[in-house]
Design a protein around this nucleic acid. Sequence first.
DNA 1: GCCACCTATGCAACTTGTTGCACTGCACGC
DNA 2: GCGTGCAGTGCAACAAGTTGCATAGGTGGC
Lengths: 181, 181
Amino acid sequence: MALEHAILVSLDERSGSGYELARRFEKSIGFFWAATHQQIYRTLKRMVELGWVTGHEVAQDGRPDKKVYEVADAGRAELARWLASPGEPETIRHDLSVKVRGASLGDPAALVDEVARHRDLHAERLDVYLAVEKKDFPDPSALSGRRLHQHLVLRGGIRAERALVEWCDEVLVALREDDRR
Amino acid sequence: MALEHAILVSLDERSGSGYELARRFEKSIGFFWAATHQQIYRTLKRMVELGWVTGHEVAQDGRPDKKVYEVADAGRAELARWLASPGEPETIRHDLSVKVRGASLGDPAALVDEVARHRDLHAERLDVYLAVEKKDFPDPSALSGRRLHQHLVLRGGIRAERALVEWCDEVLVALREDDRR
DNA sequence: GCCACCTATGCAACTTGTTGCACTGCACGC
DNA sequence: GCGTGCAGTGCAACAAGTTGCATAGGTGGC
């Protein structure tokens, strides 16, 4: 599984606590890898046992103590190994497609609403990604290294969301057209 | 979870055994919902207990007996309920993006190979989908009902794979360009 | 005659991911 | 002074997905 690797990548960019990692997964990392704080805490614990990261407690005043984690050499080695190892393309699980395929067994109007709702959600996400791109990567052609890689991943999110919005639109036109007949 | 619903949709299109369902999930249904035979057998068992499907054994000569399942009224009701209920957009888990984002921690050439490999896999899938479209849906504008829904889902697969191929190409150009500097 | 592969179902063990809850303490609005 | 929300960590139970194996007869190649 790649959650460990996603955490390694994130910790390598900047060390942090489980809580901070969870926040990053809600925003930037979460654009391409979802994880809850529960998963992150459990995985960090295992990674310490494996020697991939080291953790030390940091006292804070006014706030609870936190444990800050850093990538260890063994973690960097594991990441390098994994980066070079071939992986399977993702297994797809797309609820909305199941719903569209089963459309004739339910209420057509309700399905149209559901597709329209997803269309708007994806359009919103697309806007967020485009705003991030404009703000953080104003001159893409000048990028290199880490910043380039971050931008490329964002580009993937943009392409994926755009494709989804367009697909939803295609579905909506077709379903409404079919309804009228 | 939607595996049950994907099975209901598939069984509604045509009754079949667990084994047959597993085959369908390898091809058409698997285009948007992956499942192994283990999951399918287990889920079918649960669905019988819930009264969503009925199963009866069918003796075959030369081959092992099979259990053929059919959708029951309660199953159709559940499917209708689920179709009208709002769902979350998919949680994304994209290995390759994690790899790209962590690129600076591994061998650049190995990552380029990995991205190129995925590019070819997605291009292959795209070709398969396009071939299916040409063969099974030669006149898309004339479609309605169930056939229309099947075609729309296929369109989603085509859009998704095309977006992935194009993203891989963008990544390859950028990584190679960056390497040269 | 043996090996490999297909049809067909399923158990058991394991890994992952989800959900609900528990505990602490500060800040802020009303 | 009370509820809400944020920061922070974590257990426990459950649901879902994966992997390895077992069983059993039939087909087809060498």
